[in-house]
Nucleic acid binder design. Structure first.
Lengths: 248, 248
DNA sequence: TGTAATCCTTGACGCAGATCAATTCACGGG
DNA sequence: CCCGTGAATTGATCTGCGTCAAGGATTACA
């Protein structure tokens, strides 16, 4: 296992892969320098719980690479994923000192962290940071509301199609520029994590993935690699308007 | 019908009932004066749709009095409420020019509005406004995530108990200071709106409300007035930890 | 090469909540 | 006072998804 890779962190903010999408996106070079002085990197292995709900949070930070989940758990063990953290996403909340959710690494992860207090001070003095954080929070709120429609009103098949569409769309944005032709990508989540995301059981997830494959909506290579021959068909299955309706 | 009451708006920001909780909460008196110059009041009757999803939004604003809902609708008519707007809540998103959701007045409503462009300009120059909006947006995000757990993992009975608990708690904060003794309040929503909130049908809502009444968890006077004799019992029924677990 | 651990798939069955349908209740207007 | 209208209740039935259970695929390590 190549653990060294997981801790490969950018030396310099200017080379940082999330430079133009994270909280620091709007910072000028002098602001960036000040941030640079208080930042530090941390890396985590796949499967590790970075933060436990209720724990004292003495830092905030951005995901540089890798994927993590935000989940909520009930006393009896039922769990619901409430956020999916991708590179550039922000973790922690200025002004709160204990974590509200569990944060779990799905893959190996590198984070760019700031101790909370210095970051809060810096935020008060640097409107560019607060502005960007507001923008990102509003985007997350929109995503959460989209997700509420999925959880509250969609059928199991529509839920699966919606999730695959979200992953496909994100992948298309990050990698290939256009969305023409068949999309090919890996599902970053296990069936169980998909179930936690969608408010289903892993058996139902498995059945519906199989059903979409049988019906030609997706093709599978192994258990994770997906090909979507016709994205509009997938959107129809998701119950979404085939063109509009996407806030991302 | 007393329509004049609906348009009773405060003359002066200092007398405004939401002065210390809305976007303007942190503003100094000079900032308030500038806001004062660009604000205007609008009132709407119960049942009216204030904003249609997809419409051009040329204003943003705060709910001064009354209740409204944010809902999302699928092509086939399925709807999911994604937000409940109470006095002091903010409507609209700086930086976006079309509405993402339908906004519907549940009761008669008064709003304090700002044309979008001047408000955005003002926000760029007034960190106090942006800071407060960030804080409010983070709170809404937390509420949305709480709600995702309700939608994804709770049973119909737990959903109803959760909703009643939320309304009871909010009512207790606004009106009676303490939470000792039985709580009495009105449900602001119809059974159908409750169903839209919780991802259920109105029949199921009705049945579960009746069941909670039969089991002595709540008492009903007419269809709307609720008494909660034991709040912890209600929280147990909601599947929540009986003390912690509340982010509000 | 075996075997243990994960992760996934598939089947059989039951139940919570949706759907369809019929009343009942509350209230405002003629 | 009656009647009309929209909201809520309640019942009967149906079904999608959860639950329980058995096995298959892939990888890691002895």
């Amino acid at each position: 296992m190549l653990k060294e890779l997981a801790s490969a962190a950018p030396r310099d903010c200017e080379d940082c892969p999330i430079r133009h999408r994270a909280v620091c996106a709007r910072c000028e070079s002098d602001e960036l320098e000040r941030l640079d002085q208080i930042k530090y990197y941390r890396s985590f292995e796949a499967g590790q719980t970075l933060i436990w709900s209720g724990d004292k949070m003495d830092f905030v930070g951005s995901v540089v690479s890798g994927i993590a989940t935000l989940t909520q758990t009930m006393e009896d063990g039922r769990t619901q994923m409430v956020g999916l953290l991708l590179p550039s996403d922000f973790v922690g909340r200025p002004g709160r000192d204990s974590a509200a959710y569990d944060v779990v690494a799905v893959s190996d992860i590198v984070m760019c962290c700031f101790r909370k207090k210095p970051f809060e001070d810096m935020m008060a003095r640097t409107p560019h940071i607060a502005q960007r954080l507001l923008e990102m929070t509003l985007d997350e709120l929109d995503a959460a509301r989209e997700w509420m429609l999925v959880l509250g009103r969609k059928t199991a098949r529509e839920k699966i199609a919606s999730l695959i569409a979200i992953i496909a769309r994100r992948d298309a944005v990050l990698n290939t520029a256009g969305m023409q032709g068949p999309l090919v990508f890996d599902l970053p989540l296990t069936r169980e994590a998909m179930a936690d995301y969608l408010g289903l059981t892993l058996e139902t997830v498995s059945r519906q993935v199989s059903a979409l494959r049988r019906d030609g909506v997706i093709m599978l290579e192994g258990k994770r690699r997906v090909t979507v021959p016709d994205f509009n068909r997938l959107l129809e299955e998701a119950g979404d308007d085939s063109d509009g309706g996407l806030l991302v």
